[in-house]
Nucleic acid binder design. Structure first.
Lengths: 159, 159
DNA sequence: TGTGAAATCGATCCTTA
DNA sequence: TAAGGATCGATTTCACA
């Protein structure tokens, strides 16, 4: 999947723009990076094919969706062998409530983003973590109240 | 901004689809929700106008961007008055390295997502947090190593 | 890799229901 | 609110540099 492809200046400008304005037309994008539409489209398709662009998404306001609760959960495993990690990761892969998982260094092993309809659902899901045989030692929960700064993409330097 | 507008079944289907496929053409979207293109476009524009759709973004692979380090930082403030929170939030608003901030309930006050080029940069930025007059009591840092589950949007029920 | 032209397809607006 | 049709603009392919 061309994991070693080197992004040039124009690629980076394309990525920066599409990260901020995902529905920009190819023509507008082309003129902003000073390419013909066909050359620009070829680059975008290439970036998609090699996996630098992983998808396009509408960003929705979670507080307008009757989504329930958004929780950030820190997980510490009992053991840290590859097998134990794989078992845990397979378990969360199968939980639709877990919408994002990050494996991190430090005193904590995983940071999860979890969406549940209400506290009761969280109480039930919580038991799967601590009671179950997922090899979890301890979890800490934080409930989202407000988003003072919203993620709109990674910083990409122009040059 | 029509914060009380009630989403109907078709709105929710539109949101679910655009959240997963942000660059879908209006025609394709229209046929998937069984509307004419013009009616579908009017709904999408409406959802954008009232702020349920906040933007469109290409999702990029952070490990392919030479971005440096992605850090998750937990922040505990010394005090919890509205003024102290506002001061802290204004400070992180002005830091481009802080790409996302969540105000959460529990023993921690804020969860930050921070992107820095390298450890040295983080060491410098860290001092702004603990040394500065931001009213920060304590921070805990986790560095992203791997993403076993990637966020692709909130769960939206069909009916 | 890039350009420009040609053909197809999509977005958008307006009218009518 | 929705549909249909007209118009204008965008996407995509291809021959060529």
């Amino acid at each position: 999947m061309a994991a070693d492809y080197r992004l040039d200046r124009i690629d980076r400008r394309i990525l920066k723009i599409l990260q901020a304005e995902g529905r920009l037309t190819n023509q507008a994008l082309a003129s902003r990076v000073a390419l013909s539409p066909s050359a620009c489209l070829a680059r975008v398709r290439h970036l998609e094919r090699i996996g630098v662009i992983q998808g396009y998404h509408a960003r929705l306001d979670p507080f307008r969706l009757d989504i329930g609760l958004v929780l950030f959960v820190e997980v510490i495993l009992e053991g840290h062998s590859p097998e134990e990690q794989a078992r845990f990761e397979a378990a969360i892969e199968a939980m639709p409530e877990v919408v994002e998982a990050s494996h991190v260094s430090g005193d904590v092993d995983y940071l999860l983003k979890i969406v549940v309809a209400n506290m009761m659902e969280w109480t039930r899901l919580r038991e799967k973590f601590i009671g179950g045989d997922l090899g979890v030692d301890r979890i800490t929960t934080h409930a989202l109240m407000r988003k003072p700064k919203i993620f709109k993409g990674y910083p990409i330097s122009d040059p």
